[in-house]
Design a protein around this nucleic acid. Structure first.
Lengths: 222, 222
DNA sequence: GTCTATATTGGGATAGAC
DNA sequence: GTCTATCCCAATATAGAC
């Protein structure tokens, strides 16, 4: 526990991935490590964090258990790499999605649509929710997830064209709310997929959100 | 695993705890069981779900490990009882808090204040967050947490005096948002307690919320 | 009802052959 | 780099004395 082997190791080459982080620290791994990481990810999605044992990962990957230790040092090393890959992909997908349209109404629209999609697709939210309690107890993991959320908020600001400029200060709390609504509604939807109408809630949020942005003069009066 | 002992057992005497559930299914337990449950709860808050082992609980409670099996059948039985106690207390505290004031502006105010307090007090949110992923994978636990959230939304509706009446349908999505904002902001606050200004976000939410309720004529124009 | 003691399983880590 | 085999430990469950 004190001195993990850490032969190839993960030198933790993350930058502040605010908008477009250049190098993804995942794809440069050797094939076996990638295979193991993919297997771990599938198990996390399918069976949860508690089922993420080295034996289960090795079986899912079709690799030897000892190979995990070789490539990632120990289990914590594997989890860090797994979280990094989740974080990287989550941020990248949000950015590419919202940047498909030019600045303005269309981007706002795609932001809301992305929000609705995430809330209704429980599976996309599950891996992060699984790892969240564990991440809150580990300083290094917590920072990584915190950076992910900072990236989310940054993307919201970019969509609103407030990444730089005087509106940034007033819109930062708005970005926090925007993300909070996604998380909170995802939880309620996951708890009771049939019983509650999340669509009505996201529609109401869009209405409240547009009223606020209109007051500020951020978006045109539709 | 197939046939747990389940001698005293938990006959699962829950009702739909919408507003005021009459009997709390916790206090009727024998002293040793209560002691074990309290110890389990402390461990969950302090060390997380992963540390919730029978050995740790027995030590924390000063009881024998085997007594847990006797009173709760097996670990799942203990977790169900623990979750029930958490659910019961969470709902009761929200209700008593919001009902300290007469209907109207003061209750809305106490609702918002309660919201702020929960978001800023990470510890109060942690037990539920710890158990949530596990609950989503277990039908019986999931239903219990879903009932808790339904109770939360019901209380919001009561505060707005819309529990019965024509406004209920339109305000149900609002109640969902109200709860979602608490959960979502709690997560962001827990991830980065120093770096982000949750107070500004809750203040913005109050502003947006009041504007919406004013539009509907639910609250007076302040 | 509560205890001690133990059976049994599964987890993480690693030595050492190839 | 990858494998097999093994070590050590912690966890749950339960038998049986009191």
């Amino acid at each position: 526990m004190e001195t993990p082997r850490r032969r190839p190791g993960r030198p933790s080459t993350r930058g502040h991935l605010g908008s477009l982080s250049a190098k993804d620290p995942i794809e440069v791994l050797p094939p076996t490590a990638l295979n193991i990481l993919g297997a771990a990810r599938r198990i996390l999605e399918r069976d949860g964090f508690a089922s993420l044992s080295l034996s289960a990962i090795a079986e899912e990957a079709g690799e030897a258990k000892a190979s995990i230790g070789y490539h990632f040092g120990n289990k914590e090393g594997l989890i860090v790499a797994l979280l990094d890959s989740l974080v990287h992909e989550a941020n990248r997908s949000l950015i590419t999605e919202t940047h498909r349209f030019p600045m303005g109404e269309q981007r706002v629209r795609s932001l809301v649509e992305g929000e609705e999609r995430i809330v209704e697709d429980i599976e996309s939210y599950r891996p992060l929710l699984e790892i969240l309690p564990h991440a809150l107890r580990d300083e290094s993991l917590r920072e990584r997830v915190a950076e992910l959320y900072a990236g989310y908020r940054e993307t919201v600001l970019e969509v609103l064209d407030a990444s730089t400029g005087p509106d940034r200060g007033t819109l930062e709390p708005f970005a926090m709310l925007m993300i909070a609504v996604v998380d909170g509604l995802s939880i309620q939807h996951a708890l009771d997929p049939e019983g509650i109408n999340v669509r009505a809630a996201t529609a109401l949020w869009e209405r409240m959100m547009r009223a606020y942005l209109r007051d500020l003069g951020i978006i045109d009066i539709a």
